[in-house]
Design a protein around this nucleic acid. Sequence first.
DNA 1: TTGCGTGCAAAGGTTTTGCATGGCA
DNA 2: TGCCATGCAAAACCTTTGCACGCAA
Lengths: 135, 135
Amino acid sequence: MPYHTKQNDLILECLRSQPGHMTAQDVIRALADAGHGVGSATVYRRLDRLVESGMARKFIVDEKLGACYQYAGDSQECERHSHLKCVRCGRLIHLSCGFIDELDEHILKEHGFRVDSGRTVFYGVCADCAGEENP
Amino acid sequence: MPYHTKQNDLILECLRSQPGHMTAQDVIRALADAGHGVGSATVYRRLDRLVESGMARKFIVDEKLGACYQYAGDSQECERHSHLKCVRCGRLIHLSCGFIDELDEHILKEHGFRVDSGRTVFYGVCADCAGEENP
DNA sequence: TTGCGTGCAAAGGTTTTGCATGGCA
DNA sequence: TGCCATGCAAAACCTTTGCACGCAA
């Protein structure tokens, strides 16, 4: 049975305060800056637990950057968000789109694979960067 | 102007011999096992160049595992492959599917983002693992 | 001969692990 | 009082970087 600790609340609150996504290192730095230093080992351990329990979502954006975490506690609104990562400028774009749902359904029915859109990252080139290439 | 070296051939041949994908570490180990030791720095440098030149593709599967590389020299057949990664058993499944093309087209037209399917990894649960959950 | 490519070693970064201590139940 | 959680430090890991030497052109 997991215990309820102050550090757990701090980490969760930190994630919640951030509209976007944070790496584990972001969380560690944010807590340190706020005056509540939390050991990095604890942050990693708690983040993994939050993901297991469904309070947070975890996905990989970039191989240099570590894993990214995002709060998912209250609303499931972001559940069907996917992400677009521009490999040129590095921007990460949220994508809410019915087409994704259709795709997920198709993959489930035809290929027997249940996709978790919240984790999935599409790589490519964003409009701005594509514009710069072909002016 | 890039030079043509023995190590470059070895690395490319190593990738080509593998039907699937390899991490940089896999390449290093494979070459070492084959008796041709190639320095890890060289492997990383050459792999990056191969990706730049289009001879190989690179994508991220798992944050613990490093980047994955795949040969893409002869045929572009795999160009429109996406990958499904089962978060339960860790299996990586190739997905060739017209629906993906439609999605990419939709994202390009409606969201102005050109997706590179070859890099994209869908996370979720495969049929086998889903079956084990609900027998 | 020129200068890119290589290899070794060291450094950089994130994440994990071991172990003694502290705090929740 | 138990036992999980924490924190520190050290370790493990992949990847990058610096530098001298070797090899392709």
